[in-house]
Computed example of a mutant assay.
Amino acid sequence: MNAETVADAMTEVVLPGVVEPSGLEIRVCPAPEPAAGEVVLALEASGVSFAEQQMRRGKYYDQPPFPFVPGYDLVGVVARTGPGVDPSLVGRRFAALTKVGGWASRVVLPVTDLVEVPGALDPADAETVVVNGITAWQMLHRIAEVRAGGTVLVHGANGGVGSTLVQLAMHAGIRVIGTASPRHHDAVRALGATPLDYRATDLPAKVRELAPGGVDAVFDHIGGDGIVDSFRLLARGGTLVSYGTAATRDVAGSSKLPVLKLVGRLFLWKLLPNGRRTHFYNIWAGKRRPAVFHDRLRTDLGRVFALLADGSITAQVAARIPLSQAAEAMRLAESGTVTGKVILVPDPAPDASGAH
């Protein structure tokens, strides 16, 4: 029997500790009640981001104590509203950033966190550009501010953020060099970028062949020692935008130290009189000013949704997997074999006989 047939119940995926994907737990619990200013979203889609891959290893910088429900973002329909919330929101589709908590069939959120999804968009398609779209848009347009005619280097151009970033840059008239494993080069090329093998020992030289004067921006989610090459590949006036520490995902030890070392290195580079800029992007940094944070969230994601709705960019859905099979979704996302984002969707409802 599907868990959602239980009255007033919901299904959630729990990360109990540092476990393999098979260690994720599926739990049925009472459906949440919205408080004043809150809504309950009925899940339509949530993604498997790199953040969850780090979290299951205990390696995400500021993850909560175990156990907790992962899920960095989601798309869903308002099922219930709390006191003080417009009841006409029920039945309308919204997206939200959560950092954790999105892998559940019902999620309580402040109404201020919601960004409306255009009605024509498929929920899973929209989900691919929530955290990925905001991240890519803000890094490209708010931080690096690369203009049409420029050239950028996108590491991991086949990934969730990377594939979105490539498309946004191409739409803005920016030339893209994208790194990926050879198996993904056709997919990267189809997005409009020039693919290079990220494992090539002469990668910097290959980038220099394509951009002899350096690139206007490098978007680096890898961190580690390779960040040095990313910095050196910048043209004068270029910007290195670092937004992750993938290189240390499987390295034992502190979850905070790799980030702190990376931020420290970027800060020191800022002091060099070489005309290059560095920035560590954290999507949550703006929450110190909530009104500005939410305004930018709605504005930037709204722009990305509009581009998705009119076909200027396309959703990169690697797979759609039922919520109860989150372990399979995690394994697939970590396999390195897919382009785009693995999406969790609601489990199918049983038919009248109780069978799926």
Results as ranks from 00 to 15, higher is better:
58 G>L: 05
338 V>F: 00
179 T>S: 11
344 L>T: 00
148 A>C: 09
85 V>G: 11
174 I>Y: 04
31 A>C: 02
210 L>Y: 05
309 A>L: 09
5 T>W: 13
132 N>K: 08
48 V>F: 04
70 P>G: 07
165 L>D: 04
14 V>Q: 07
249 R>L: 14
80 R>A: 15
289 R>A: 12
207 V>E: 07
190 A>S: 13
198 Y>K: 11
164 T>Y: 00
300 D>L: 11
176 V>P: 04
3 A>N: 11
210 L>S: 01
7 A>I: 01
216 D>M: 04
11 T>H: 14
142 R>T: 12
277 R>N: 14
81 T>S: 05
305 F>S: 07
265 R>A: 15
187 A>N: 00
6 V>H: 11
250 D>M: 14
174 I>R: 00
20 E>Y: 01
144 A>E: 10
58 G>V: 06
92 R>L: 08
190 A>C: 00
52 E>L: 04
4 E>A: 12
255 S>N: 15
305 F>E: 03
230 S>F: 06
52 E>T: 08
34 P>F: 10
152 V>S: 02
204 P>V: 11
208 R>L: 10
281 Y>G: 03
24 L>V: 10
113 D>P: 12
293 F>Y: 15
129 V>H: 02
12 E>H: 11
59 K>A: 08
42 A>K: 13
224 G>N: 01
247 A>N: 14
292 V>P: 01
349 A>V: 07
102 G>F: 06
74 L>S: 02
340 G>F: 03
7 A>K: 12
191 L>A: 12
222 I>R: 06
128 T>G: 04
207 V>R: 02
271 L>V: 12
101 G>K: 05
117 V>N: 05
101 G>Y: 08
290 P>Y: 12
233 L>Y: 01
133 G>L: 03
110 P>R: 15
218 V>Y: 04
348 P>R: 15
16 P>V: 04
138 Q>C: 08
38 E>D: 11
63 Q>I: 01
75 V>G: 06
326 A>E: 09
198 Y>M: 02
76 G>P: 09
309 A>K: 07
177 I>Q: 04
104 A>M: 09
229 D>H: 13
133 G>A: 04
226 G>K: 05
269 W>Y: 15
18 V>Y: 06
182 P>S: 09
101 G>L: 10
204 P>L: 06
328 E>Q: 14
118 P>D: 08
100 V>M: 00
124 A>K: 11
146 V>Q: 06
172 A>Q: 12
9 A>P: 13
99 K>M: 15
292 V>S: 12
325 Q>A: 14
156 G>L: 05
335 S>E: 01
321 I>G: 13
60 Y>F: 14
83 P>S: 14
347 D>N: 14
167 Q>V: 10
80 R>H: 02
22 S>A: 15
60 Y>T: 00
193 A>M: 01
271 L>P: 03
259 V>Q: 05
26 I>W: 09
221 H>V: 07
72 Y>C: 03
123 P>G: 00
103 W>N: 09
78 V>L: 02
157 A>S: 03
17 G>V: 11
4 E>V: 00
172 A>G: 05
176 V>Y: 00
152 V>C: 07
270 K>R: 15
231 F>W: 08
289 R>E: 12
